[in-house]
Design a protein around this nucleic acid. Sequence first.
RNA 1: UCUUCAGUAGCUCAGUUGGUUAGAGCACCUGACUGUUAAUCAGGGGGUCCUAGGUUCAAGUCCUAGCUGAAGAGCCA
Length: 488
Amino acid sequence: MNSIRIFPCEFFPTLIIIIPMKHLKRTKIVDILKLTPTNEIINVKGWVRSKRGNKNVNFIALNDGSTIQNIQLVVDVEKFGEEYLKPISTGACISVNGILVASQGQGQAVEINASEIHIYGEADPLTYPLQKKGHSLEFLREIAHLRPRTNTFSAILRIRHAMAFAIHNYFNNHGFFYLHTPIITASDCEGAGQMFQVTTMDLQHIPTDESGKVNFSEDFFGKPANLTVSGQLEGELGALALGSIYTFGPTFRAENSNTPRHLAEFWMIEPEVAFYEIEDNMDLAEDFLKYLIQYALDNCKEDLAFLNQMWDKELIERLEFVTNNKFIRLSYTEGIKILEEAVKNGHKFEFPVSWGTDLQSEHERYLVETHFKCPVILSDYPKEIKAFYMKLNNDNKTVRAMDVLFPKIGEIIGGSQREESYEKLKSRIEEMNIPLKDMWWYLETRKYGTAPHSGFGLGFERLLLFVTGMGNIRDVIPFARTPKNADF
RNA sequence: UCUUCAGUAGCUCAGUUGGUUAGAGCACCUGACUGUUAAUCAGGGGGUCCUAGGUUCAAGUCCUAGCUGAAGAGCCA
């Protein structure tokens, strides 16, 4: 390393002597904390969380993001000089060589006696927005470029990584293949809300035809194109060839949703499996969610403990409850009966309950949080309130849909067994006025070698809301995209 | 998009029935302190009271509109 150390000379106070800092391979704090103290010199690099002390000795709490834990640096003030240490304030980035020793203080097992310090970057205390105190989540959202440097967000981002890894791990272990479905799609029939249009046309001079309509043949793809709202339809194509696939990618919805549970850009996991009935689909969803939550409990202990202590005292308890209890499974019809019973017994809902209407948030919350106090898988909804591709039951009234409802989050998973009959699917498409010409490829999977199959979509950030205990989805993604907000 | 609530120092917030020079804690700066744990102690600086109108002798405080944020609802994962 070409780093240097500068310090004032005793005889010529203005003279600065430059000495190359001894080059050592960096050790991450997460690994340092596992070491037993020897007399070897090690190097640590990171950002200063706090500096305290007196005329003789300074204590620097350093964090490098590898763990929520800081390493304590002990700095002899006389050795470096007050002036040199001054710019090492909260937020500054430094590289330190020193000896790892057993701590003389109470708060930590080991600490580093600093012998050389190089300052990579100062952080002017007058303007650096992060202080050594708690900040509101709303304030931190306004400084999304710096919030990963806080304990809370570094914990969330490490958990986010762990969950992404665990998702791939689970599917790989279960023989699923990761299928990359397109981000840009020219089919407007994915049926999950408003789409963002993709175009290379000059919006100031849009080409039109004789009748004044937009001439999309001049656009990049020669027809209207959008960002995907779901990889499911393509996922089905994969499942009907590879057997078991999953997608895990960004998803875009141009809905004007202003809630703590919605993002315009979010990540979704969509497994799709051939020869799966709806019950198999439920088994997969339950096993998958429990695996992920258990993975977090096993591998993100310190970060979860921090979030539990800081934001949500019941977090770990709630996670353990979910892994230890079977999800309640019941049909939409049974759910309605329970809700009607509740109304009879005096429970007041803002919206009326009756068979055939979609369940409101308050109804789902009643089932999950009040009645069962447990995750619930609701299935077999009336066909009128569900998507065209869901398999019709023999009663001709309900479809094999399933929603997994979680406490605090609501719908975390939505899925179904897919309609595999060419004729039934075709007539559903026609009933819902979806243009058949755009769906020919989807229908051909039913025309040639069709098979029963099922799948679901898991909102990655909704999973993270549950696992981290955060209340707002904008706090579990590094850079949130919501209506009127695409900064950073 | 609808409903409700909020916007005062860098951050978190107090500010009485409308009444003189708008406060506190933390942060920051200066000083003290021989091992601190978001160190402590003493002192200091720091304000377009969200914006624009209006009511009033007088507005941080009341009214109207807008902007921004949050919560709930709808849409959904």
